[in-house]
Simulated assay, not measured.
Amino acid sequence: MKDPANPTSRTPEDDRLRRRIGPTIRDVARMANVSIGTVSKALNNNGSLKAETRERVIAVANALGFRPNSLAQSLHRRHSFTVGLISNDSFGRFTMPIAEGLEACLADRQIAVFMCNATDDPERERQHVEQLLGKRVDGMVITARRADRRPGLDGALRGLPVIYVFSQSDDPEAVCLLPDDEGGARMAVEHLIGLGRQRIAHITGPERFEAVRLRRDGYRQALTAAGLAEGEGYYLSGDWSEKWGYDAAARLFAHGREPPDALFCGNDQIARGAADALRERGIAVPEDVAIVGFDNWNVMTEASRPPLTSVDLNLRALGREAGRRLIAMIDGTPMRGVSRLPCTLVIRESCGAKTDTLTGTEDYA
């Protein structure tokens, strides 16, 4: 309890609180024998100070372990140097590479990322939005485990810069960054055609996903451009699973029909299942049938026998580009619309070509 006769007296509780909070700017000023304003100028590298004064203040702050109050600084500067990242990809398969690219870009501006997982729960997502707004983030990135359209958050974000990455808003004014699924599929099938394959089947996931429809369109565009016909029953849509890949390949190589000499698969899980089905039937990959997957998920591509050629979504590049655009939006540059960034083809043994990487050359749409 404080002594009423001495308002400046300190209690044990005061000392415990001080230890928990750490040294303050007043402590730095007292130890350096300067004013609080001088400490602020020295640590923020502004104002007119002698070099020796600035160096002395910084040395004292470092010796005390002083950390500036970032919230107070953000109120003063009108920027918090933080952004929020909200995802429903609880497994992290797609979000983590995007987050890595985003952080790598924002680190150059000393901007930190707060990451939140909404797990397909609108109420939880709303709570995350409110918490991030309470932290006065400078912008928001919304991502997901699939690139389909979703209700926009723009209204709830009260004019804050927001960008959707590997996700789309139903607001036509929103800024969205997506991989070029159609271009990636076209590149994969063109590669198979260039290797001399002419009977190319496509095993893919559920058509309710936009990515499935776009990859199907790219597959057919490449066949048409090369003057090749899509064989009867060569397009098979099912689940995103190894089991579906196995079952679909078994159907394609049933007796009494002309089998394909190449399989373009809608994801790497399907491709791995298809490879298992061929191996059980004594069909050699890539000698008899070449296989190309999609997503370039190392867990699948490197464990497949043989290692799987696959289209890479370039998720880290998407994250870096999202960072660049978000910085521009925070600085006041207006943006809108959907942009699709090119994919690359990572070539491994399953297609019969030498290991390499082909880069898509499409411009942003």
Rank of each mutant, 00 (worst) to 15 (best):
residue 97 P to T: 08
residue 139 G to Y: 08
residue 108 D to A: 15
residue 148 D to E: 05
residue 120 D to L: 06
residue 130 E to V: 01
residue 121 D to H: 02
residue 164 Y to Q: 10
residue 126 R to L: 04
residue 106 L to P: 12
residue 161 P to Q: 09
residue 104 A to N: 14
residue 143 T to Q: 00
residue 120 D to Y: 11
residue 166 F to A: 12
residue 117 N to Q: 11
residue 75 L to P: 07
residue 138 D to H: 10
residue 94 F to G: 01
residue 79 H to L: 14
residue 82 T to K: 11
residue 175 V to K: 12
residue 155 G to A: 12
residue 162 V to H: 01
residue 83 V to G: 00
residue 89 D to H: 05
residue 75 L to Q: 08
residue 183 G to E: 13
residue 172 P to W: 13
residue 168 Q to M: 14
residue 161 P to V: 06
residue 81 F to T: 07
residue 165 V to P: 04
residue 175 V to Q: 12
residue 92 G to V: 04
residue 111 I to L: 14
residue 131 Q to G: 03
residue 140 M to A: 04
residue 77 R to C: 05
residue 117 N to Y: 02
residue 102 L to R: 04
residue 166 F to Y: 15
residue 104 A to Q: 14
residue 140 M to K: 07
residue 81 F to M: 13
residue 117 N to M: 04
residue 154 D to P: 00
residue 120 D to Q: 12
residue 119 T to Y: 02
residue 176 C to A: 14
residue 82 T to A: 15
residue 82 T to F: 06
residue 127 Q to M: 00
residue 83 V to C: 08
residue 87 S to T: 15
residue 137 V to K: 02
residue 88 N to R: 06
residue 121 D to S: 02
residue 182 E to S: 13
residue 84 G to D: 01
residue 179 P to E: 11
residue 98 I to N: 06
residue 164 Y to E: 09
residue 149 R to L: 11
residue 164 Y to A: 09
residue 163 I to M: 04
residue 128 H to D: 00
residue 100 E to P: 02
residue 180 D to L: 08
residue 157 L to D: 03
residue 140 M to G: 00
residue 114 F to I: 15
residue 133 L to N: 01
residue 89 D to C: 09
residue 145 R to Y: 14
residue 86 I to V: 10
residue 141 V to N: 06
residue 156 A to W: 02
residue 136 R to P: 01
residue 96 M to R: 11
residue 179 P to H: 11
